[in-house]
């Protein structure tokens, strides 16, 4: 058998030990304080040190040195590898990037988003018309007692406003419930898009039916004023999350020239941005719904504000991040 090296293990270890110690120290420091805050001299030594350790590891494996030595080198190289390949950019740059990346990702998926809007708003319109013509239709999607209570509450109007505690409670409820629904609507899209389609349809239908019922009981103006403030964020976000789920599901059903797994990975990396944006929109919606929509402000103010928010959200999704995308080489 040809031995690849004539260096004994002991001699090898004693000649290289200093370098290994230094690399271990450097990568530990980089892991502790972050790569960016490492002194330039240390940073310059980290990468060559890692490559040397890789060479040493390859040598130790080829020369059949003892398992503990190889393990030690593997651990050392793995630690340095994790540090070197984990470089992250500054937080401020990431936030600015995300702000533009969200509407861009939405526009890239506009087909799926349009389908999601159809799957949501068509049942919503159907539910609305059905319970307008026959209010008992709404009892099929929600319990009668709850609906009666709801329409009485809206009939009373918002002149008393909400007390601070009640606003916080409702905001908490909306965060837990609505954001949860939107995220679940996205996640279940992995089953070929069926889960997303189901959640979109179900939520559209029940929102439409409840809306129709409340209007049929004569509280239409009040619920309209209530919804308009946060509606563009809330309904928009559910559609976007559903659209992201549909994209993810479709990427498995029809992967094109990629494998199904690669298609899924590429698409979901892209659409997770949409989901994060939708979740942020829903947090805004929850705060508005808890503290603004139920407040005792005059209806005119709420209408104007709601219209402005609708314009803002639409403009953001349609226009934001465009110039740079086109200017980019």
């Amino acid at each position: 058998m040809a031995l690849t090296s004539r260096l004994t293990e002991g001699a090898f270890v004693s000649s290289r030990q200093g370098a290994w110690g230094e690399l271990a120290h450097l990568s530990q420091r980089a892991a502790d304080v972050g790569l960016r805050r490492l002194a330039p001299a240390d940073l310059a030594r980290l990468s060559p040190g890692y490559r040397d350790a890789c060479a040493d590891l390859a040598h130790a494996r080829a020369a059949r040195y003892s398992a503990p030595l190889v393990e030690q080198l593997e651990l050392l190289a793995a630690q340095a590898h994790s540090t070197l390949y984990a470089a992250r950019r500054g937080q401020a740059a990431r936030v600015r990037e995300a702000f533009a990346a969200f509407p861009r990702a939405v526009r890239r998926r506009k087909g799926a988003v349009a389908l999601a809007a159809l799957l949501f708003f068509a049942p919503l319109a159907f539910g609305l018309l059905a319970s307008l013509s026959d209010p008992t239709f709404a009892f099929k999607v929600a319990p009668e007692a709850m609906l009666r209570q709801l329409s009485e509450a809206y009939a009373r109007g918002f002149d008393e406003g909400r007390r601070g505690g009640e606003g916080a409670l409702m905001a908490g409820f909306y965060v837990n419930n609505n954001v949860g629904i939107a995220l679940r609507c996205f996640a279940t899209g992995i089953f070929g898009g069926l889960g997303s389609a189901f959640y979109l349809f179900q939520n559209g239908l029940s929102i439409g039916a409840i809306l129709g019922y409340v209007i049929s009981q004569g509280a239409g103006a009040n619920i309209g004023v209530f919804i308009i403030g946060h509606g563009s964020f809330e309904l928009g976000a559910i559609v976007l999350a559903g659209g992201a789920g549909l994209s993810m599901g479709w990427s498995i059903v029809s992967p094109g020239e990629k494998t199904r797994l690669h298609s899924l990975q590429d698409t979901s990396k892209d659409v997770v941005v949409i989901v994060a944006g939708a979740a942020a929109m829903l947090l805004v919606a929850a705060l508005l719904e808890g503290f603004w929509s139920g407040s005792s402000l005059p209806a005119e103010v709420k209408l104007v504000f709601g219209g402005a928010m609708f314009a803002l959200v639409s403009a953001y999704l349609v226009l934001a991040g465009r110039a740079r995308a086109e200017g980019a080489p």
């Binding site: 007390r163 601070g164 505690g165 009640e166 606003g167 916080a168 409670l169 409702m170 905001a171 908490g172 409820f173 965060v175 837990n176 954001v179 949860g180 995220l183 808890g290």
Partner: peptide, 23 residues
């Protein structure tokens, strides 16, 4: 006095925590 205020705030906080635990 301010029973429902503190209760509302507390329950709101709890619901947000539940959300955080899940997501």
């Amino acid at each position: 006095g301010a029973i429902s205020d503190s209760a509302g705030l507390g329950i709101g906080l709890l619901l947000v925590l539940l959300f955080a635990a899940q997501w």
